[in-house]
Design a protein around this nucleic acid. Structure first.
Length: 424
RNA sequence: GGAGAGGUGGCAGAGCGGUCGAAUGCAGCAUCCUGCUAAGAUGCUGACCGGGAAACUGGUCCGAGGGUUCGAAUCCCUCCCUCUCCGCCA
């Protein structure tokens, strides 16, 4: 959520920002409503002031007659007040509904564009592997090596269901230890295991609701299943005031993730690239309210993820997401995409974004700065490692002519071997 | 699933129709005091919305929303949340 004062004073910037994100929002209607709101509020304040003075007069009145006179006067005022309050309530209902639809303003460096096709590549790392044979897709590789079972997966779990088996399961466990160890040694990150079953407020606060209700699983108790540990870890400090000396707060957060993938029925229907249920390690940062700080940590979080891919020796690129590919609250986002030989293209493994105070304003997470002024912290998040998606890139990039899969060097110690597969 | 208790400022905790934005304690800040530190003394210190260049000033906020009343932290209703005990259980 943006500050209404900011919207009022920077109307053109907000409109341009929404346009860049390809989000339709009627700022003029919002501002007209806001004018009404302010007029009504002022009028109510004035009447309340009158009431407060009268109230003291009633309490301290010495004579009953004088007392009754003020009371009857206040009875009339009460009626007028009630009408104003009713109008204000109506205005506020509309006002709030509009406010949650106003997107955050994207950074200057965000390219203009209509879809993820217009994302701008800013970095490439690694050699794309050259095979002396026709490379297989991860779908086939994981199946033929006994590492995944899709048929029984859908029998048991339905569409997009899967089992990971043998080296498929071992590889996930190896990756768990790999990523945990890397972050254990990184100073400043607090390890956190995060709830996936989360109440409505954290979803509102992080900006997933009300817009993306259809992407979320909902329980009969009205809770939702989170699609990322971002939701739970951001909300960890909801409604709290932090001290500046405690910032930045960095979480290395783990959670199971659930996504309905409602808008993508036709996409990636085979294998384990796009599934309803997975696990993810996420980096989450709360920092001081400064653009420079946000940018600094954004680069740091991105570099952390790149270091993992480099250690796994997976060729990847970094793109800046274009306006249309940004979420409501995001100011800027890098996607990191690792090479997928069967598709001859890079596919997303990480998503790194910052929000300024968009999320924390909704979540009401603040801190006291050096002057004792209370301000909203800034928030950021980026994937550390999502599984099993990364298996797709590992399997394909490390496949061998005989159909088995080499174990990336960085994982050999955790796997206890250097080749996976062929276990039926 | 059953039975109770409770939600008040950064924290703890009083208040239970008007003089309550709210005692008191802790924490924090400032000054004083003391070789240093600790301790002690005095004072200050909530958030939000609006007006004002500022000093300052009007309003709101005691889980949320309604209601009663001239007036609600206090009374009534609905909802949300937390805790305790019993049962069940990884």
């Amino acid at each position: 959520m943006l500050d209404i004062k900011f919207i009022r004073e920077n109307k053109d910037i907000v409109i341009a920002g929404a346009k860049k994100k390809r989000i339709t929002v009627d700022i003029d209607a919002l501002l007209a409503l806001d004018d009404k709101r302010r007029v009504l509020q002022a009028s109510i304040d004035e009447k309340r002031a009158e009431q407060n003075i009268a109230s003291k007069a009633i309490a301290s009145a010495k004579e009953e007659e004088e007392r009754q006179e003020v009371i009857s006067k206040m009875q009339t005022l009460k009626e007028i007040l009630r009408k104003d309050e009713e109008s204000l309530q109506e205005v506020m209902k509309e006002w709030r509904a509009l406010m949650v639809t106003v997107p955050n303003v994207p950074d200057m460096s965000v390219p203009d564009g209509e879809s993820d096709k217009d994302n701008k590549e800013v970095k490439k790392w690694g050699e794309i592997p050259a095979f002396g044979f026709e490379p297989k897709s991860h779908v086939e590789l994981l199946l033929s090596n006994g590492m995944a079972d899709y048929e029984r997966g859908s029998k048991v779990a339905g569409f997009r269901g899967y089992f990971l088996k043998n080296d498929g399961a071992r590889l996930v466990w190896a990756l768990n230890r790999f990523v945990e160890e890397r972050f254990m040694n990184k100073s400043g990150f607090t390890p956190l295991i995060v709830p996936s079953l989360v109440r409505r407020e954290p979803f509102m606060g992080t900006g997933y609701l009300p817009q993306s209700e259809e992407d979320l699983y909902k329980t009969q108790d009205g809770d939702y299943l989170a699609g990322t540990a971002e939701v739970g870890s951001m909300a960890y400090y909801m409604d709290e005031i932090l001290e500046k000396k405690d910032l930045p707060i960095k979480f290395f957060a783990f959670s199971p993730c659930f996504r309905r993938e409602a808008g993508s029925y036709g996409k990636d229907t085979k294998g384990i690239f796009r599934i309803h249920e997975f696990v993810k390690y996420e980096q989450v940062v709360l920092c001081e309210a400064s653009h420079e700080e946000s940018v600094k940590y954004h680069e740091e979080l991105t570099a952390n993820s790149e270091a993992l891919l480099q250690e796994l020796k997976l060729p990847y690129r970094v793109v800046i997401n274009c306006g249309a590919d940004l979420g409501l609250g995001q100011v800027k986002k890098y996607d990191i995409e690792a090479w997928l030989p069967s598709e001859k293209q890079y596919r997303e493994t990480h998503s790194s974004s910052y929000f300024h105070d968009f999320q924390t304003r909704r979540l009401n997470i603040r801190y006291r700065d050096e002057n004792g002024v209370v301000r909203y912290v800034h928030s950021l998040n980026n994937t550390a490692l999502a599984m099993p998606r990364i298996l797709t890139q590992i399997a394909e990039n490390y496949q061998r002519a005989d159909g088995t899969i080499s174990v990336p060097e960085a994982l050999q110690g955790y796997m206890g071997k250097d080749v996976m597969g062929r276990v039926q």
